[in-house]
Computed example of a mutant assay.
Amino acid sequence: MPLHEAADEIGKQNGSAKLAEVIKIISQVEAGKNFAKLLRKHKKTYEKYSKPRNKIAHGHCAGYLLCDENYVVFAVFERVAGSENMAADAVPVEEMERATKWGGMFAAWIMNLLSGLETRSNTPPKA
């Protein structure tokens, strides 16, 4: 699928939905079935680490908790339930570090697998 078509197809979904859609699309190609299986195994871990990563990437860093400097405060674009106030969320620095490290490793892993998938899909079948 050309990248511009894939962007139209899955571009506006949240990360978990995008990953599910990518798994579905890749599963339809014979060379991608094993890759899709591996991605399914990592989906839950992705969902665990995506929460703090989304705050880091999409929230406004407002500083740290005065009572505990091991927590970074993010103003997130969400309403506090039942009020007109906007939400803020405190994320432990340690959790941010784990999520960031995991994200880098996951991206490298995916790029490595995609390279292998691309190589296999471009290899002519043996006669």
Rank of each mutant, 00 (worst) to 15 (best):
I10P: 00
R40A: 11
M86G: 11
S83G: 01
S50F: 04
V29F: 07
R79M: 12
A107S: 14
N112T: 13
E95V: 02
K44D: 13
V80H: 03
I110C: 03
A108S: 15
H58E: 00
M111W: 08
H58P: 00
F77C: 14
E118H: 14
V29M: 06
A57L: 10
P125F: 04
Y64E: 11
G15F: 07
M86Y: 12
I56S: 00
Q28V: 06
N112L: 11
V80G: 02
G32H: 04
G11K: 06
M1L: 09
K37I: 08
T100C: 10
Y71N: 01
Q28I: 06
W109R: 06
L65C: 08
T45P: 05
A17N: 06
I56R: 03
E78H: 05
L19Y: 02
M105G: 11
V91Q: 02
I26S: 05
A36L: 06
H60C: 08
P92K: 03
R120N: 13
V76S: 01
K18P: 00
E9F: 11
K18N: 00
K43L: 15
P52D: 04
T100N: 12
A17C: 04
L38T: 12
N14Y: 06
I10E: 01
K43F: 05
F77V: 11
A75F: 03
M86A: 15
Y46D: 04
G11E: 05
R53E: 03
G63Y: 03
S121Q: 09
E47A: 05
R120I: 14
K18G: 00
V22C: 03
A62W: 05
K43R: 15
I56W: 03
R40G: 09
P2F: 06
L39C: 05
L66G: 12
W102R: 02
P124S: 05
D89R: 10
L3Y: 11
L38K: 14
A108M: 09
N85R: 14
C61I: 06
L65V: 04
E97F: 10
L65M: 14
R79T: 15
K12M: 09
A108R: 15
S121P: 00
K37C: 09
T119F: 15
R40H: 10
D89F: 05
A31I: 05
A88D: 09
F74S: 01
E21L: 10
A75H: 09
V93K: 12
E97L: 13
K126H: 12
L66C: 08
A62P: 03
I110R: 00
E47I: 06
L39K: 02
Y64K: 10
Q13S: 10
L66E: 12
A127L: 15
E78S: 06
K18M: 08
A17Y: 01
R120K: 15
R98G: 04
V76Y: 02
M96W: 02
